[in-house]
Design a protein around this nucleic acid. Structure first.
Lengths: 203, 203
DNA sequence: TCCTAAAGGCGACGAATGTTGCGTTAAGAT
DNA sequence: ATCTTAACGCAACATTCGTCGCCTTTAGGA
């Protein structure tokens, strides 16, 4: 989540210039830090204002709610160039996906805190959902490549393969909030690949 | 979630009697109704007090927070006699599990509202986690029965089978908040059973 | 350079949310 | 029947949260 570099300037021709952009960056950086330190429960507009040096009123006017702050932070961190790794085998591709996901969900990094918080704020949850949808769509390439290579049946359903590999990670790390070793994440990738090879996810 | 019948009386020998128990039942019932009507965001102590006829101060003193109200509601609804269906085949057993889970997670019933709310309140989330842990432990019988019948390999890992069947439901219905048809839930059960038969979840 | 208006800063206000002290009610014991 | 005290009701108070009116700053154009 790179809050300093704002990839999306203002669409309207208002005042994209110096102060507004600086205020925006400082506020989002403060949100990220507050989130990492105190979690979602300790995230208050007052604290963000104090840390960023921006007045409360300004934050309320520009973002309205704490939710919206999270949405902005999520959108600022989006990466339009992301693509799944291409290793040459379905199992290895899925393993790479799961390791990346595991690092995001299990880590105590700011990213992890943002993700954890987003599940508790309706608007932020919607933004995060769009993010995951995009990732899944891009990741479908992993399955179609495996089909092209002849690794798995032609009528394999990409969504089910990806879901089989990744949903246990979400379930255990996000919902049940229990730890998971990288080895376990790898195993879910391996299981999904093996099941796909066995033709279990055929349409 | 049956809030009227309180299965857990006070452990200390204080005053388990008439008024306290009645107050508790009325408050929990009010929480359940408020939750079903306005959702978690609209759940406020004041409204619960008005609906239940119990004074705000009393609620604050006995439960402290809105979170604790949810925890109490969850604990009041626990069913110690629950057991997974025993149909005679792994696929059918898993299907029964997934249908029950689907009804709980997808339904607009009070139960569904309580579950949805619990994911946004830390303490309630912990209580709900304990609930699911218990369910998974009981459900492992489904897999061990299949082993006994010779349906699947002896060294099949029950947890992985159950996780494969159920985690896609949580992922889609709770995290991504997207709809799922009962047929899709059935298919995840079928996929997990097929993979188990294929020996994919061997230790 | 000067002008305009959008954006930010400031303090005060109002509403909602919790807290506290004290009087009242009633459960359970004698 | 009477007594004791835990639990509840009540009202006033404190705090936090979000909003509003007004003034100041500054980006961007003439």
């Amino acid at each position: 989540m790179n809050a300093e570099a704002d990839a999306t300037p203002f669409p309207e021709r208002r005042r994209p210039g110096g102060r507004s952009a600086r205020v925006r960056a400082e506020v989002l950086a403060a949100v990220e830090q507050e989130l990492a330190e105190h979690g979602y429960d300790g995230l208050t507009v007052d604290d963000v204002a104090r840390r960023s040096g921006v007045h409360r009123t300004t934050i309320y006017r520009r973002w309205k709610t704490v939710d919206a702050l999270l949405v902005a932070l999520l959108e600022a961190g989006e990466d339009d160039t992301w693509a799944p790794a291409d290793t040459g085998s379905l199992a290895a591709d899925l393993t790479a996906l799961n390791r990346e996901l595991h690092a995001s969900l299990a880590g105590t990094s700011p990213t992890g805190a943002v993700i954890a918080a987003a599940f508790r704020a309706p608007a932020a949850a919607a933004a995060l959902t769009r993010f995951w949808d995009d990732r899944y769509q891009r990741s479908a390439a992993v399955v179609t490549r495996a089909v092209t290579r002849g690794e798995i049946p032609e009528d394999t359903d990409p969504d089910r393969v990806l879901m089989a590999a990744t949903s246990p990670l979400f379930h255990q790390l996000v919902l049940r909030r229990q730890p998971m070793t990288p080895a376990e994440a790898d195993r879910w990738a391996a299981d999904a690949a093996a099941a796909a090879v066995a033709g279990i996810y055929r349409a």
